[in-house]
């Protein structure tokens, strides 16, 4: 990609944070209404991809909290943990615990899904946009 739009490159930084805030809102909204970790994660990926396209993949990678693969792993780990926590009392895997003010292992699970989607799909987008191909994943 040789020609980049300066306007888009400049706008991508605030847009990134706005999209990320929207992603978080969708993630938390999914608790009782349409939304959730997967959709929220996709919006977060859109934010990362926007930066990757408007500037370069390096800039997008720097804005991620972790490198793509560890981020995805952390997500799957959190989701597994959410499933295991419910099992502590002897109930089967993925039995969810609920507490007051909306906190539950379900939210933890959803956050895990969010991070897994964000990490893995950002990784793919970076691999597709970078010149090195899969070796640079």
């Amino acid at each position: 990609m040789t020609s980049r739009s300066t306007l888009l490159a400049v706008a991508s930084r605030p847009l990134y944070w706005v999209l990320l805030a929207a992603a978080l809102w969708i993630l938390l909204r999914g608790h009782n209404e349409p939304g959730g970790g997967f959709v929220g994660g996709l919006v977060a990926v859109a934010a990362s991809s926007l930066v990757a396209i408007a500037r370069d993949t390096e800039a997008a990678r720097r804005l991620l909290p972790l490198a793509p693969l560890p981020l995805a792993m952390l997500g799957v780990g959190l989701a597994t943990l959410a499933g295991l926590l419910g099992g502590i009392g002897g109930a089967p895997f993925l039995t969810h615990l609920w507490s007051s003010w909306g906190l539950s292992t379900v939210v933890l699970f959803d956050v895990g899904v969010f991070l897994a989607v964000w990490g893995s799909l950002s990784g793919y987008v970076h691999a597709l946009l970078a010149d090195g191909g899969p070796a640079s994943r």
Partner: peptide, 15 residues
């Protein structure tokens, strides 16, 4: 997920 993976794979092979 599989579509993403295979696109990366195909792009790499084509390159």
């Amino acid at each position: 997920a599989l579509l993403c993976f295979s696109l990366v794979l195909a792009a790499w092979l084509a390159q």
